[in-house]
Design a protein around this nucleic acid. Structure first.
Length: 857
RNA sequence: GCCCGAGUGGCGGAACUGGUAUACGCGCACGACUUAAAAUCGUGUCUCGUAAGGGAUGUGGGUUCGAUUCCCACCUCGGGCACCA
């Protein structure tokens, strides 16, 4: 073949790899394993743009090197096809979601296949496949039938909790349960409870539980919307992104996952993960741990108010106490206030407001509960009690002590309503969180904030507690296209029973209309047989199937277990996970949660699912915006592949900038990557039989070293740039041996798998033609990754830069083993240096081995 | 507002642990080959200066023989959280 015909070559080898199962993962073996995983996509209808494959190409390069390094590599791909995108596509095109998914998967697979990714397609999973979601349902039931034991700090089967109830009631059980659940009972009572009562109590402890939650309800669309489906109109009101209709808050029955039970472990264990600090930081903020004190204020109506504060050192600065309009016992305060009528109007209005405006930061409002005072436990001072909407009911105790002098929000409120401001801390200039020294605080005067917190909490009989911002996760969608929740409810008694293992999967029934019902109920509520049988009409959310798929790849066809113990032990966990950072507080947190649960129950051997995580950056369109149909700036990879070839696309996408950074697509620049491959093609036609010149050997081994290290750390852009340098040198130097060129092809192979395979084959064919010992063809991708020779990496002569007072004046060549004195001597005698140092006193001469001499005068 | 991350030629970007700033690629200019063009190859390409030399890594300061790299303050952009007490 004379010219580099990418179309012919790429087709030929894709066919070959497919037929020969070149990339199929070996069975569990003695070989060391390596698990390289991409986040599996939603096969939406829009198809791919050039931004999508960037992550896949990066992980593919990585997987290919690991394979050549002799690892048994697991590098699979699959589809996360339940959820909104698939459902919306189906509704828009008026076809069944099942069909829509199949069509979209096909498009997706065709687009992926031309890029030359080395997936083992025999391990493909699809979350909508009943053989798959059978196990999603199975895991759900395990979670449903578990509770969280704080003492052993892990999940345990609910049957064990029932046993404990039978022994002592729930008084001495330290379990994670619903926030406001305080009722206690003894074992005698447990036995006397009815089934319904027992179910109600257990529901407070289950890790998957039923409850009510405020959701974003759009009456016009007749559906519940996720937060990111809501935008703000010009008056700051919440409207739906699709259609622009008003959105309000509505309380609806939901299933929840008690992820808050794992808050501390999710936080602590993330420290040991090899993830970007950025993602870890996002998760940390999301979990939002804060340590503080819970203290009680007595009030004039004989009802105590508990408050949570991280700044108990400011207790002497409290000038009023605030409770939320949705405070649990607010009615008791209301009826005893002297301005009851006004207060009740305020509370009603505040509740209305909180339902409507969920986006804009509203101005703080409030009203005093006249005639009611609270007593500061530190100094016995009587302070007024207010109701105000800036206090959240759902966090802490729903009440706060207000310290206007040291809290911005309290300050703003106090200013507005003319409440007193009392300063008790002198802030230290260099400290964060405006810690400082106490004054006007009685016997605590002069203490610093930190010390004071411990002492004051003890003094007022407070408790040290830890709070988290993170909420339990809603685990239900009022939609059709999701995994059915495998529970049955008796119509008359309301008793919920779980489906037995052998009854799984509970298959999604066919419906005539899968569009939202408009009543807020799932379309499943319209299926008579379904409702009659007592099945749950909500389905699971999109994140259910994606929270464990990485385990299924280990043993994708197992019908008896979600994966065999043996497979789980061998594949252990994901070594390299590649995907977008937009999943930081979603998928990446939920997967860790489920994985920890499975670990507690002894189903998986590791505490964390993803050892190393890399996030590929976005590809921005040349107009500076995200690529989107909406802007009409989408570049289709198919076109690029056709014009320049898949190898060019791969090289360009890896070369255009750092892998984890957003870069903009520039169609003009692709040509550089194509030229690089063209040069290689031409070089391959004029190789030397014997050996390369010494320079070439030296730079080749340097390059092998650099590429190996660069791929390992995913610095693909610099890897390619150093291969370009090597190729430029080869072109100049002309004498390149076949043997050396083959080594170069091997390190290029992960980036450009087709062209390297083609040249590799041609070289073997020529060899065979000329020699008697015919070689059998083995793919370059199964060849052994070249090792660099450290001796050949070292230069005999090194360049030393000579500076005078830090300014470069000349450079000299020295042998690499020259000693310090000789180098210094040589530098000072250099003809370019003498004029600078003549007649000057030399104060110091600094030498950095192999790099620089700096003469200070 | 709070918490992260980033700022380097016309453009994408490189620079090991503090040691030649601008590698590699695109673009541009000139030259070679060609009847011509494309392709290819070669040379040049931060800035002021004829040169010697000087100045530049968002801005201002500091540490150092030496700072894109470390420290302080500020500006701009991107991301996350958003009344979490």
């Amino acid at each position: 073949m004379k010219n580099y015909d990418h179309i012919k070559i790429e087709k030929k080898w894709q066919k070959y790899w497919d037929a020969n199962k070149t990339y199929n993962t070996e069975a569990i073996s003695k070989k060391k394993k390596y698990y390289v995983l991409d986040m599996f996509p939603y096969p939406s209808g829009a198809g791919l743009h050039v931004g999508h494959p960037r992550g896949y190409i990066g992980s593919d390069v990585y997987a290919r090197m690991k394979r050549m390094q002799g690892y048994n590599v697991l590098h699979p791909m699959g589809y996360d096809a339940f959820g909104l995108p698939a459902e919306q596509y189906a509704i828009e095109h008026k076809i069944h979601p099942r069909k829509a998914v199949d069509i979209n998967v096909k498009t997706f697979e065709r687009q992926l296949s031309v890029i030359g990714l080395s997936y083992d397609w025999s391990r493909k999973v699809n979350t909508t496949d009943p053989a798959y979601y059978k196990w999603t349902q199975w895991i759900f039931l395990k979670i449903y039938n578990s509770w969280y034991d704080r003492k052993s700090d892990k999940a345990r089967p609910i049957t064990e909790l029932i046993k404990l109830f039978g022994k002592s009631g729930n008084k001495n059980i330290d379990a994670v349960c619903d926030l406001n659940y305080t009722q206690t009972f003894s074992y005698k009572e447990w036995n006397t409870f009815t089934e319904v009562e027992k179910q109600g109590i257990l529901m407070k402890y289950r890790l998957a539980y039923e409850g009510y939650a405020l959701v974003n309800w759009c009456p016009k669309l007749g559906t519940v919307l996720a937060n990111d489906e809501i935008v703000e109109d010009k008056d700051g009101k919440a409207i739906s992104e699709r259609g622009g209709y008003p959105v309000e808050k509505l309380s609806m029955r939901q299933w929840f996952m008690r992820i808050t039970a794992y808050a501390d472990r999710l936080l602590t264990d993330s420290e040991g993960l090899n993830w970007s600090t950025h993602i870890k930081e996002i998760q940390k903020n999301w979990i939002g741990k804060s340590e503080g004190s819970e203290i009680e204020f007595k009030t004039s109506i004989n009802r105590n108010i508990k408050v949570f504060t991280t700044r108990v050192d400011t207790l002497f600065g409290v000038t009023y106490v605030v409770i939320s309009p949705e405070y649990e016992n607010i009615s008791e305060f209301l009826v005893r206030s002297k301005n009851m009528a006004d207060v009740s109007v305020y509370i009603r209005e505040a509740k209305e407001r909180s339902k409507k405006d969920n986006l804009d930061q509203k101005e703080k409002t409030g009203i005093e509960l006249k005639g009611i005072t609270a007593t500061n436990p530190a100094n016995g001072e009587e302070v007024p009690v207010w109701v105000a909407d800036y206090v959240l009911a759902g966090y802490g105790t729903g009440a706060v002590m207000a310290v206007p002098a040291h809290d911005e929000r309290d300050y703003e409120f106090a200013k507005k309503y003319n409440l007193p401001i009392k300063e008790v801390i002198i802030e230290q200039v260099n400290s964060r969180h405006d810690d400082g020294i106490l004054h006007d605080s009685g016997k605590f005067d002069g203490l610093d904030s930190k010390e004071a917190r411990t002492k004051i909490t003890k003094e007022v009989d407070g408790k040290f507690i830890t709070k988290y911002k993170m909420r339990d996760a809603i685990f239900a969608r009022q939609r059709y296209w999701g995994e059915p929740i495998p529970l049955k409810r008796d119509k008359k008694t309301g008793i919920i029973t779980t489906l037995k293992d052998k009854e799984l999967p509970l298959k999604l029934p066919n419906v005539t209309s899968y569009e939202p019902t408009g009543t807020g109920e799932s379309p499943l509520a319209g299926v008579n047989a379904w409702v009659k049988a007592g099945y749950e009409t909500n389905t699971m959310p999109g994140w259910a199937g994606s929270s464990w798929y990485f385990l299924r790849y280990m043993d994708p066809k197992n019908e008896k277990e979600f994966a065999s113990k043996k497979a789980l032990k061998y594949w252990d966990n994901v070594d390299m996970y590649v995907g977008g950072q937009e999943h930081a507080t979603g998928h990446l947190l939920y997967s860790r949660f489920w994985h920890k649960f499975l670990y507690d129950m002894g189903f998986v051997p590791t505490k964390e699912p993803f050892k190393t995580l890399k996030n590929q950056g976005l590809i921005i369109a040349s107009d500076g915006r995200k690529m989107s149909k909406r802007w009409g700036n989408v570049i289709n990879p198919d076109d690029t592949v056709k014009t320049y070839g898949a190898d060019t696309l791969r090289v360009y996408e890896m070369f255009m900038g750092p892998f984890d950074q957003a870069v903009s697509w520039n169609t003009d620049s692709i040509i550089g990557s194509r030229r690089f491959l063209d040069k290689i093609w031409r070089l391959s036609l004029r190789l030397n039989k014997k050996s390369s010149s010494k320079d070439i050997e030296n730079i080749l081994h340097k390059t092998i070293k650099k590429i190996t290290l660069d791929i390992e750390s995913m610095n693909f852009n610099t890897a390619i740039s150093s291969m370009m340098i090597l190729v430029n040198e080869m072109e100049k130097d002309k004498i390149v041996s076949e043997k050396d060129f083959k080594m170069f092809l091997q390190i290029l192979a992960p980036f450009a798998p087709h062209i390297t395979e083609e040249i590799w084959e041609q070289l073997i064919r020529i060899d065979n033609y000329e020699s008697k010992n015919k070689k059998q063809f083995t793919s370059i991708h199964l060849s052994i990754w070249p090792k660099w020779n450290e001796k050949k990496v070292i230069d005999d002569m090194v360049k030393i830069v000579v500076q005078v007072n830090g300014k470069v004046r000349t450079e000299i060549m020295i042998s690499n083993d020259a000693n310090e004195e000789d180098v210094k001597d040589l530098s000072m005698k250099d003809k370019d240096i003498i004029p600078w140092i003549k007649d000057k006193e030399i104060k110091r001469v600094i030498y950095v081995k192999g790099r620089i001499v700096n003469i200070v005068i």
